[in-house]
């Protein structure tokens, strides 16, 4: 009977967890839309990362992670051109709900015990901004965000040069989006990073 009771309590936690995730994810979508509006990007498209999306037909290769879109999700905000019409830039925001998998070198996606403890991980946004001359092709290898140096809680910002493209990677803890004032501070810091490095002048709308 003790086991039945622990299962019941666990299932109660499952219900709580689902409701927490709903409340959390609504806020994530609100924040991303706010960022898109403030940086004046045209739209938001979403892409799942960390595993495949949930398939219609469940097979042995289907993971539970396939049903959990919020673990690592990309919001692609589209492309823009600078006022001089010679530079293009594109922005994605990656929602790392849990960096725990990425913090350890020995993690296995389907074995939660190999992830670092929840308290030792972080929930963060990673801004991925590519800037290039208009006539050059996009680099846009977003799989780079899976690298430990960018995916973990210790990452702050990195600027990569890939061919003619400049890639700005900027990490910020989700707790920084506590309210609008804080959110604007984050965005101003991001804009200042891009400006101070002589990359692109972004203004908040």
């Amino acid at each position: 009977m003790g086991n039945i009771e622990s299962i019941r309590q666990a299932l109660c936690d499952v219900r709580k967890a689902h409701r927490i995730i709903y409340a959390y994810q609504k806020r994530m979508m609100d924040i991303v839309r706010f960022i898109g509006n403030k940086l004046d990007f045209p739209f938001v498209e979403g892409y799942k990362h960390f595993s495949n999306g949930a398939p219609k037909k469940i097979s042995s290769g289907t993971w539970a992670w396939d049903y959990l879109y919020t673990y690592l999700y990309e919001y692609y905000l589209g492309t823009k051109v600078n006022p001089e019409n010679n530079i293009e830039y594109a922005l994605s925001i990656f929602q790392f709900s849990d960096t725990g998998f990425f913090e350890s070198d020995k993690s296995v996606r389907t074995n939660l015990s190999t992830f670092v403890e929840e308290e030792a991980a972080e929930s963060k946004f990673l801004f991925f901004l590519e800037i290039k001359p208009k006539e050059c092709p996009w680099w846009w290898k977003t799989e780079v965000i899976n690298k430990k140096e960018f995916a973990t809680k210790n990452h702050t910002s990195t600027i990569l040069k890939e061919g003619e493209s400049i890639i700005v990677l900027y990490s910020v803890g989700i707790e920084k989006f506590i309210d609008e004032k804080s959110a604007l501070e984050v965005l101003n810091e991001f804009c200042a990073l891009c400006s101070n490095e002589g990359l692109i002048e972004l203004t908040l709308h």
Binding site: S6, I7, Q9, A10, D13, V14, K16, A17, R19, I20, A23, Y24, K26, R27, D30, I31, R33, F34, L112, S113, I174, E175, F177, I178, D179, E180, A183
Partner: peptide, 24 residues
């Protein structure tokens, strides 16, 4: 259309740390 909800309105809801173990 719904207004923005910020992270400051996300409430802490303690979960039993053993729950994952129960299912794992």
């Amino acid at each position: 259309f719904f207004d923005i909800e910020w992270v400051n309105t996300l409430t802490h809801c303690p979960l039993n740390s053993k729950t994952v173990t129960v299912f794992s």
